[in-house]
Structure formats: C-alpha cells, structure tokens
Amino acid sequence: MRHEIQLVGKGGQGVRLASSILSRACGIYDGKNLVETHLYGAAARGGLSESELVISGEEIYYVKVQNPDFLVALSQDAYDEYGAAVKDDGMIIADEFYVKNYNAEDKRLAMFPLTRTALDVVGALIAVNVVTLGVLSALDPELSPESVRSAIKDLVAGKYLDKNLEAFDKGLELGESK
C-alpha cells in the first residue's frame, strides 16, 4: 500500500535530515520502496523547508505526495498550507510552540510539545527533528522505531548521537502517551 508522509517546517529545523533518516529506515532497514522529494527554494536559511516521502511495499509510480497519511507541521505556515490535503483518517502532528492557530475540532490534529521537548532534553532547538521522529515512529504503524533508531545511528555524527537518541526516546514516549 502507498503510504505518504510529509514533513514541513522552516529552514534550520532539520527537516531534511529527518527525512533522510526516515528514508534510510524504510528503504534500507525495512527494505521497502520509497521516494523522497523536497521543495527547493533559492533561500538557504529560514524559508519553508518541505520533505515528502512515499513509502510502499510495491513499486512507486507517482513520486509526489498527494494526500498525506501523516503531516508533520513544525510551523504555522506548514499547518496552514499543507493541513487541508491530509487524508480524512490521516494525522497532523503539530508543534505546540509554533502552531498557535488551529482548528481544535479537527480530528486529524494532534498537538505535541516538540520544540519544548527538544530544549528540555537536548538543550538545542535543532533536536526538534529527532523528537518529531520519535512521535511519528510511535504513531505511524508503517514505521519501525528500531529501524528509525538504526538510521539515526548511521546519519547523526558521533558526538551528538547520544543526545539525539535520548531525544528520539522522549519523542517515542510522547507519541505512545497519545
């Protein structure tokens, strides 16, 4: 089955690394097919950062996300611009710190203290991506937390690894608590 995940935030939140970790987890450790695409812009920092993953046990034809099963919204713009396309039975994982205006009636929406957890656990905003991966891994049955953890070990540099794994575990807890 075709499964779609979309990660959206601002430049500097580590969206690209998070999507690379998910790609590696699904494509290498789980042996699934996947296509990872991004929205590119001329600005290197601060602008919209968007990653799309299509995951499937079968061959993937169309490469872009159409109606995501999961949307991660790390900014207000992300929620505003991409929220509507999420499947009716899909899920929007949004960051409490940056997403302030939202429809509380929306059954798809789940708010998490992603940024705050990153600051509490690692003391760095940049860890928000790994916290998010933890939450996502707990909630998305297509993902294997162990594979995601292995991919983090492959792609995060040595001296930051322990803190990142801690942040990932904290994210898992947050996700499981829902």
Binding site: S20, S23, G27, I28, N33, L34, V35, E36, T37, H38, Y40, V63, K64
Partner: peptide
C-alpha cells in the same frame, strides 16, 4: 529534470 535529480530513492 529537477524532480529526478533531487529526489532520493533506493
């Protein structure tokens, strides 16, 4: 093209 060049796949 830009899509094929920038996308990642196994």
């Amino acid at each position: 093209d830009e899509v094929i060049s920038h996308m990642s796949e196994p």
